[in-house]
Design a protein around this nucleic acid. Structure first.
Lengths: 195, 195
DNA sequence: TGGATTGCGATGCACTCGTATTGCAACTGG
DNA sequence: CCAGTTGCAATACGAGTGCATCGCAATCCA
């Protein structure tokens, strides 16, 4: 077995390039050659690691999901053990919002994939599962234990993300809206040090 | 001046075809020839009415926005004069959600355009204005007059739309979440006849 | 009735696309 | 040391893209 090469590393390298292209030119600009150029490799190599374009897209989507997970767990890890529910929720949701220029890129890619999977339902189940898990978790720590309220909070997060990307809301406005919502859900008393 | 033809009608005919293509194959499948075939006309004619593809896209986007407006005003018109604020809000928001199979198509197109304009900011200002107007209106009829709460409600609507399209939420779940939110905003007493 | 002007179909052009195929260099296990 | 496997570059191909151009038919104003 000659030439040991880290396949996973190559694939994520390519996926990174794909996400860069998608972030500032849209998913429709993602082609084998574009991605290859962006990654600084030959088009043949991309083809070597991803037999087909759909495979490449699927992998990139999995990377996006994975990164979101990581962002959330990292943010939560900074809270120490047994954080108050409201702070926990706020931290998790804020971690998923495209608030700064860097996370905006990821958000754009995620939004592009959202529209992408809306038409190619092959990857939809996994996204559905993510959402279901998240709603269940939110409901479990909400004081009311209300499934509808949990679904609403998650939807609010998604909408904030969309409007942040579209430039309709500023980061401040989005966080204000989030905090106002948490006020509503947790009874109107602010328990965290928000500006 | 020969051959009087209703330009506007032709253009909306073509835009309709575009939206049909975009609804079930995605915006990336939208090409001059595809749209022409879907519309049952020649590719040359599409080119005749839209000098460039971007122009066609821009027009289609304007049609999408216009249709949303119409849907809302029609729904509101069915309420009679001076409807209670909560019912008014619920009606308007529900009219914008992709709740049935028919409005799902429109929603898919809107979502596709959302991702599209996230990368081509040329059409973003108009969307921004729509959102700003809507938030201002919502804030004006909310009992708390809270801008953040209004922004949150709108974001919640957008998120519900996204999740409805993705299949994460059913129509019932989405409406439950909306009603739960209105409960929160209007003080917890249901003033309308919801199931 | 006769230009003039418009509507629109047809064709061509220069690209880009995804994928299949080929060839070769590099490396490693025996 | 060399056979064999693997990594990767290059190329070719057919299909599809947006757009420019041409040509002709239909129509209206004079």
């Amino acid at each position: 077995m000659p030439k040991k090469v880290d396949h996973q590393q190559r694939r994520t390298l390519i996926a990174d390039a794909l996400m860069r292209v998608a972030a500032d030119q849209g998913l429709e600009a993602v082609s084998l050659r574009h991605v290859a150029t962006e990654a600084g490799v030959s088009a043949g190599m991309v083809q070597h690691y991803f037999g087909t374009k759909d495979e490449m897209m699927a992998f990139a989507l999995s990377v996006v999901r994975e990164r979101s997970q990581i962002r959330v767990t990292e943010a939560v890890a900074g809270l120490g053990e047994n954080p108050p529910p409201r702070l926990l929720l706020r931290t998790m949701i804020a971690a998923l919002l495209p608030l700064d220029e860097h996370t905006r890129d990821d958000g754009r890619v995620a939004l592009a994939f959202l529209a992408y999977t809306a038409v190619r339902p092959s990857a939809a189940p996994s996204l559905r599962e993510d959402t279901a898990q998240f709603t269940a978790f939110i409901a479990s720590i909400l004081p009311t234990n209300d499934a509808a309220a949990a679904a609403g909070l998650l939807a609010l997060m998604e909408g904030l993300g969309v409007y942040l990307l579209g430039g309709q809301y500023t980061a401040e406005q989005a966080l204000d809206a989030l905090d106002a919502q948490l006020d509503l859900l947790f009874g109107g008393t602010r328990t965290t040090d928000e500006p």
